[in-house]
Write a protein that binds this DNA or RNA. Sequence first.
DNA 1: CTACGCACTAATGTATACAAAGAAAGGCAA
DNA 2: TTGCCTTTCTTTGTATACATTAGTGCGTAG
Lengths: 219, 219
Amino acid sequence: MRASDKAYQTLLDEIVEGSLPPGAVLAEVEQAARLGVSRTPLREALSHLRKDGLVEPLAGRGLIVTAVSIDDIVELYELRQPLEQQAARLAAQRGNPQIFAQIAAELRESDKLISSGAEGIRAYYQLNERLDRAIEDSIASAYLVSALKGLHLHLARIRRLSRQNVDRLRAAAVETLVIVEAIVNRDAELAASATHVHLQQSLRNSLDTVRTLAVDRVA
Amino acid sequence: MRASDKAYQTLLDEIVEGSLPPGAVLAEVEQAARLGVSRTPLREALSHLRKDGLVEPLAGRGLIVTAVSIDDIVELYELRQPLEQQAARLAAQRGNPQIFAQIAAELRESDKLISSGAEGIRAYYQLNERLDRAIEDSIASAYLVSALKGLHLHLARIRRLSRQNVDRLRAAAVETLVIVEAIVNRDAELAASATHVHLQQSLRNSLDTVRTLAVDRVA
DNA sequence: CTACGCACTAATGTATACAAAGAAAGGCAA
DNA sequence: TTGCCTTTCTTTGTATACATTAGTGCGTAG
């Protein structure tokens, strides 16, 4: 693996996971020393993160991890809505119904997972990731998949902020099931509409929890 | 201006404009010498072009300019459709109607431009660019704007391939006018639908002309 | 006491030298 | 003659030294 790729992947993980929080300063020499690479590959990693929108230049201070405001969440969903609706639409038209039928079956059992503690919730998240993968594989449109990849970077970061309670996870599972069943039945417009509904609920939940956290912090 | 930015911009222009056609090999030392910069900033430029999807690695031969097949055009429109529909929707909700009313007025006069030779057609293209800019400015969603920027890179390249005849330009102007009028009237869903129609026609025209050119080349 | 300017310092931006990896070509053997 | 192996050469990948720029802090003058 190239040193620049390794540096990129490491920094990306740390930003998404939160150990490099918004506002963290990324000085070249410092990070190069920390990651055990020279400045050249590190700079390449940083410039890619900049294109991803995860870091931005701060006059004189080098690069800092970008902030995630409530406005950012709303704006991100203004991109997410059309992209994922289109993804669902194309998956319904082109996907292999058997693959999605399998996921639908597991989603119907997901209540048990969600109620069975942290271990089960991790398994539920993995199921969602498998669904995302299945949709991307079905799409076959390189440009759309690429846009989705960039989107998911930012979503992963937001997911850390907006705490998911068990009730929301259960509701999300039901909403997701509607999408997957529409894909199985090759009903593209229903898949798109169900995605619309699901994302609207998801946005509402994100905003509610983030606002609550913000209030908590002040109190 | 940084040398890496200059190299990026130059290569980008050359790829979009066609002087670096699909399949062109971009060796680092060669391009660095040609553009008068060292390898370090040039590598940064190339890696950004790679992220843009305009160049791709070819085993052992370095980077080559990516091909643009008919399938690519279809796939690109599968991204363009949802993005530009959303852009039109948001512009209708948030844009300043006066700005778009001005553009609508000019569009109603665009027949004259289109019929008045190469000079007028250039002016017509500039009008379209002003519309794109006005829409992006109205959106205010950084993520969507960023996705649109990436999209337009590829569209500019395709526009070179699909020859625009005068009849198509006239029809496109009418379709565009419907979109702009919907924005002026703050009718978001009409703006989205009109965009859908316009892009469908645009895709059809692109595919037709590209197929014709491909046949010409064989003959 | 405040404001402007200069110098110093620390950061990014660039160039080049070196290392390593991969592909092509040539030679040898079957 | 063909196929494989080895060697060489070209290419990318990395490190480091150097240039340049911008920011901060101190000093002086008003």
